[in-house]
C-alpha cells in the first residue's frame, strides 16, 4: 500500500550561501494493507521528514514513493490532493484550522470532502468525539482555544473519521491520559483490522510494541556527513 523506494532528499538554503544539507538517502520501506510500521531513530534522524515526504509536503529529489496508485515523488499537485482526500490520512502533532470553525465541522471535513452527506458526516464525527471523551459542550466551539490534549484528540478524530486505506500517525498517543491512550490504540487496531496500512512515530514504547508489526530505523537512511 505504501512503498518507498530509494528515496532521497536534501535541503538547499539559498539565503545561507546555498548550503546543501542532505537529510535522506536511499530510504526504502514497504507497508502492506493491515500492517503498522514504526519509524524509529534518535531525534533528528529524519522520522518526520520521511513522513512528510510520503504525505507530499516535502519534495523528494529522487526515488519513488508510491501510495496506492500515486507516485508522490512525481505527482502533480492535484494528484497529491486527490490522494490525500481518498487514500492517505495524516494525524500530525499540530492542528491547523480556520478560526471560528466548530470542532464538529473540523472532524467531519474529511467525510464531507469525499461526498458524505452533512448529517451522516456530523453523526460519525460526534460518535468519534464522544469516544475520545471530547466534552459535548466543546463540539460547537472552534478547537483553536482547546488544551493540547483536546486538540490532539480532535486531530485524531479527524484522521480516523474516514476509513483511509493508509494512515500516517505522528505521536498519536503523546499528551493523552491512560483512558484516551487506550481508545487511540483501539482505533489503530481497528484500522489495521479493516486493512489500513499505517506508518507511525511512537515514542511511547508500550504503545509501539502493542500496535506495530515492525520497526524501521530511519537513521540508516541518514546520509553520512561528507
Amino acid at each position: 500500500m505504501i512503498e518507498v523506494d530509494a528515496a532521497a532528499k536534501s535541503f538547499t538554503l539559498h539565503n545561507q550561501g546555498g548550503t546543501v544539507i542532505p537529510v535522506m538517502q536511499d530510504a526504502s520501506l514497504r507497508v502492506a494493507p493491515g500492517e503498522c510500521v514504526a519509524l524509529t531513530g534518535a531525534s533528528g534522524a529524519g522520522k518526520s521528514t520521511l513522513m512528510r515526504m510520503i504525505y507530499g509536503n516535502y519534495l523528494t529529489q529522487s526515488g519513488r514513493i508510491i501510495v496506492g496508485q500515486t507516485n508522490v515523488a512525481q505527482a502533480a499537485p492535484r494528484e497529491v490532493l486527490a490522494m490525500r482526500r481518498d487514500v492517505l490520512g495524516y494525524v500530525s502533532q499540530f492542528l491547523r484550522v480556520v478560526p471560528r470553525v466548530a470542532t464538529r465541522d473540523v472532524v467531519a471535513e474529511p467525510l464531507r470532502a469525499v461526498g458524505v452527506s452533512r448529517d451522516e458526516a456530523f453523526q460519525q464525527a460526534e460518535e468519534l468525539l464522544a469516544r475520545l471523551n471530547v466534552p459535548r459542550p466543546l463540539w460547537d466551539l472552534s478547537p483553536t482555544t482547546f488544551s493540547g490534549g483536546e486538540q490532539q484528540r480532535v486531530n485524531i478524530a479527524r484522521g480516523f473519521v474516514y476509513t483511509y486505506p493508509a494512515l500516517l500517525l505522528d505521536e498519536p498517543t503523546a499528551s493523552l491520559d491512560a483512558t484516551n491512550r487506550e481508545t487511540v490504540l483501539s482505533l489503530i487496531e481497528e484500522a489495521k483490522t479493516r486493512g489500513c496500512a499505517i506508518v507511525g512515530i511512537f515514542h511511547d514504547e508500550a504503545a509501539r510494541s502493542r500496535v506495530c508489526d515492525r520497526e524501521v530505523d530511519v537513521s540508516v537512511f541518514t546520509p553520512v556527513a561528507a
Partner: peptide, 15 residues
C-alpha cells in the same frame, strides 16, 4: 501544493 511550498520552499525568495 500550498503546504509543500510553505513547508519545503525551493526558491531562495520563497525561503
Amino acid at each position: 501544493l500550498t503546504d509543500q511550498v510553505l513547508d519545503d520552499p525551493q526558491h531562495g525568495y520563497t525561503q
